[in-house]
């Protein structure tokens, strides 16, 4: 067998197989249903890609987007002739925002969402590190609400440009 298992985010360097590379490209075109600026690959929810099986993991246990993501991936695989590829879900290891790719972080920022700090330590969790305003770049920002419009985001405000913004929570 020449099929290699690839693990995101090291996918690009690990891909050795045309078929898995094609699948990876298809998945990279599938937007997250709640934050369409980033793909399911950018978010790190695709864990492994093999020629016969794609494994994904949910962000939060109750994330309502989980089912929509599964359906979108299934539909994209089927539409591209990969009906034989199984789609499996795993909980372990638990998804972490550290798995969001650098490209994904930049897309989030450009979309107006402050990306999460890397390293799920206590200080990051408690939002003790201030995010940079994704609009003006100021560090003069403050938390408005620890829970925001989706489970993965908190609501912040920039004191320099006065704009509110979402912050991707460290997880």
């Amino acid at each position: 067998m020449t099929n290699k298992t690839i693990v995101i985010p090291d996918a690009r360097s690990a891909i050795r197989n045309d078929e898995t590379e094609t699948i990876a490209e298809i998945l990279a075109s599938i937007p997250d249903p709640e934050i369409p600026a980033v793909s399911v690959i950018d978010l790190g929810i695709v864990r492994t890609i093999e020629a016969e099986c794609v494994v994904i993991t949910p962000t939060y246990t109750g994330c309502p987007a989980t089912l929509a993501i599964e359906r979108a991936i299934r539909a994209a695989l089927d539409a591209n002739g990969f009906t034989h590829v199984r789609l499996e879900t795993t909980l372990a290891p638990p998804w972490s925002t550290d798995w969001i790719t650098d490209e994904g972080r930049e897309k989030l920022r450009a979309y107006g969402i402050a990306p999460p700090p890397k390293g799920a330590d206590a200080a990051a969790l408690r939002n003790e590190t201030r995010p940079q305003c994704p609009r003006c770049g100021s560090l003069n920002t403050e938390e408005v609400s620890r829970f925001g419009s989706t489970p993965c985001k908190a609501l912040w405000r920039c004191n320099a440009c006065a704009e509110p913004f979402d912050r991707f929570k460290c997880h």
């Binding site: 939060y60 246990t61 109750g62 994330c63 829970f147 925001g148 489970p151």
Partner: peptide, 8 residues
Amino acid sequence: NVALDQIG
């Protein structure tokens, strides 16, 4: 959000 996590 807490409710959603718990139900999840």
